[in-house]
Simulated scan of single mutants.
Amino acid sequence: MTLRQAVGTAARTPYGLYGAAVVRIGVSGLFLLNLLREAGHADRLWGPGSPYTPELFRASVEARGADDRLSWWYTWLGTQSPDLFWAAYVLAVAVSALYLLGWHTRIMAVLFACVVAGFYMRSSVANSGFELLSLLFANYLVLCASGRRWSLDARRAARPAPVPVGPREELRRRVVTVLHNTGLALLAFQVMVVYGTAALYKIRGTSWRDGTALHYALRLDDFATFPGLSDWLAGHGDWLAVLAYVTVSTQLLFPALVFSPRLKYALLVVMLGTHLTIGLLMALPMFSAITIVGDLVFLPTAFWVGASTAVTAFRTSGPCRWCCRGPW
């Protein structure tokens, strides 16, 4: 296929519609879960009661040289009014839930990106990888047609309706397709950058080169979910050294191997195991979950269609056929 043919195909065929839908559901679902989980501490984390006061927040924004006319979309949460903050919090919960369900997805995608940016900036002094990846993924999803599958929009579009035709409609479809494919490519590229840079930073550290990094990580009390289990694992230095080398190797080779039809699934399984281990043993469940969501963009449409078919078959003929009737 020539470059011209590839560009023409990318302008006519939207790729990874199921993958975009899964990332939409994953990112919005995790962000909604985080908002609800921290409801009792929301004022201290993002509101006027935070140690990072609205005055300090505005001063830090001004120190960055931000233009007041352009910075409103990520500084809107810096209010001194408790009533306005809680109204904004409820709005953020509603937007996240509607985006998760895929209701008017194009509009909700923009609103959700502004919501994530506002909360990210408001807690910028204590952000983790979860907040940063949520912000990046939310911005890329603005370009994607993530509501064409597994959404209320997709259900509404499946109803019989007149199909618009004409040059203007064809141009609109091509623009939407190009934007969608671009957003999906940016999502995939971002995941590859995360793994590639993580591996390069690890290689620079002597503890990763000599295989002791995981041993020392398991000895950190602040990140020990199960101290007894962490201590037991820390006593198996040889196995931890092997796991350290496997971790660095898979992250370093991820950008190349993830496009291999044969090695892709094995690579993703290894990364899944890595993230689950981090979430379980190092008390970083949200970071692990958002990285797993990012990995899902590399699974092909055939995988999601097969998974959907399997779930539908299980619901209609399996043990739960009496309580879960209907298509998925």
Rank of each mutant, 00 (worst) to 15 (best):
W72M: 08
A217I: 07
A39F: 08
E38I: 00
I107R: 14
N127K: 06
Q80N: 12
L98E: 00
L296H: 00
A20E: 08
A244M: 06
H236V: 05
T247K: 07
C324D: 06
W208L: 05
Y245H: 08
F254C: 01
T277Y: 02
N127F: 07
A138D: 03
R122W: 11
I203M: 13
S124V: 13
V165R: 14
F112V: 04
F298L: 09
P327W: 06
K264T: 12
N127E: 06
D221A: 15
L186I: 12
P255C: 03
Y216F: 15
L98Q: 02
G237D: 10
C114A: 14
L179F: 14
H180P: 10
L299I: 11
W239D: 15
N181S: 11
R209G: 00
V93G: 13
P160C: 02
M121G: 04
T250K: 12
T75E: 02
A241I: 03
G147I: 04
A20V: 03
A266F: 14
V191Q: 10
Q190M: 02
R209Q: 06
H236N: 11
A244E: 08
P319K: 00
T309Y: 01
T105C: 07
A97C: 06
W46Q: 01
I278M: 07
L280A: 05
I278L: 08
L91V: 04
T316H: 11
F314E: 09
P164S: 12
G279Y: 10
R44A: 15
A199Y: 05
R44L: 14
V176H: 06
A66R: 07
P14D: 05
V116E: 06
L3D: 07
L233D: 02
E131H: 08
W86Q: 15
P82Q: 12
F303Y: 11
R262N: 04
V242D: 09
R58I: 02
P285R: 05
T309A: 06
S28W: 05
T79D: 11
A154N: 14
P54I: 06
V248P: 04
H275A: 01
G147E: 03
A109F: 00
Q251E: 13
G8P: 02
W232F: 10
A92M: 03
L229F: 06
L84H: 10
V270T: 13
L101P: 11
S260I: 04
V178W: 09
L133C: 08
G26M: 02
G65P: 02
F137S: 02
L184M: 10
A188P: 03
Y15F: 14
N181M: 07
A188Q: 10
A42E: 04
D295I: 02
